[in-house]
Amino acid sequence: MSNNVRGKENRAASRDFHENNVQAGRDVISILLPDLPKTEIRPLVPAQRKQLNKLVKEIAEASNEEGFVVWQKVHAEVSVKNIDEITVDQYPNALNYLQSMLDRLRDGNDCKSLMHQLLKKTSENKVRQRLYEYCDISFGTRHLADLAKSQLQQALGWLCNDLTESEKIIPPPSSRLVWSELIRSYPTIIGPIFIFGIVIGAVIF
């Protein structure tokens, strides 16, 4: 039994192949080649260019880099020389690359802000030592720069609770004033009252 792999019947059997004829001597041999997906070579539409430019601008502002430096990184990522060479099929890669870069920058800036708050709230050496001990126990390091954003947030939450509890332990100052403080605070009122009391006392006794 033989299979017929030539002619119209074979071409109709599959749409994923195309037929190529190759001549070997006097014979013509038909070879079926798989159809390769067509590459999208259309340039970016205005909305896509606008979105890429927007992300590049935000990255430049967040990183203090020039916009053209950011563009150079994008061009290297998608293997082009300029934005005019970026095609529609390359757009998702360029978009994801820029979005990831922006997310990393924002996380970095958030971490710097959290570290600043932690250091500001621990200006006293004893409080800072408690913070370092907490980080050692919870995260295995006391170097704030090595902590992730979520870890810094956790440390800040712990610190705020710790400071609040410490304030509850310290008793509030007494609202009662001693006589010397009253005289210093209200001399025009206390003076006449004191003299009047002396006069009344002398009259009575």
Rank of each mutant, 00 (worst) to 15 (best):
P43W: 02
M115D: 02
S113V: 09
E165A: 13
Q117W: 00
W179A: 15
R49G: 07
D162P: 03
R106H: 08
R49V: 07
A155G: 03
Q151H: 08
K120R: 14
V203E: 01
Q99S: 13
R15N: 11
I29S: 04
V127D: 06
Y97K: 11
A24E: 14
S79D: 13
T164R: 12
K121V: 03
L131H: 04
L156C: 01
Q51T: 14
E9W: 05
E65K: 15
E77W: 02
Q117L: 11
L95T: 07
D27M: 13
E167N: 12
M101I: 08
C160H: 10
Y132I: 04
F205S: 14
S14V: 06
A24Y: 04
L44I: 05
S79Y: 08
N4G: 03
H75Y: 15
N64D: 14
I190D: 00
E65W: 13
D107Y: 10
A148D: 15
L131Y: 07
V127C: 06
N21W: 00
L118F: 02
N109G: 06
Q129F: 07
G7S: 06
N10G: 09
D103N: 10
R15T: 14
N161D: 15
V88G: 11
S30P: 13
I170P: 01
H75A: 12
V74Y: 02
L147W: 04
T141M: 07
M1S: 15
A60V: 05
P92L: 03
E77Q: 15
T164C: 13
E124N: 12
R11L: 01
V69K: 11
I189G: 02
V28Q: 09
P92A: 01
Q129D: 06
I183G: 00
V74S: 00
L131A: 03
N3K: 13
Q99P: 00
I200P: 00
R15I: 10
G197L: 07
I189S: 02
L32Y: 15
R49L: 10
D103C: 03
I83H: 12
W71V: 01
L182W: 05
E65P: 04
T188H: 13
L105D: 07
Q48K: 10
K8S: 05
R15F: 08
E61R: 08
D35R: 10
E85L: 13
L114P: 00
L119F: 01
K50D: 11
K149C: 10
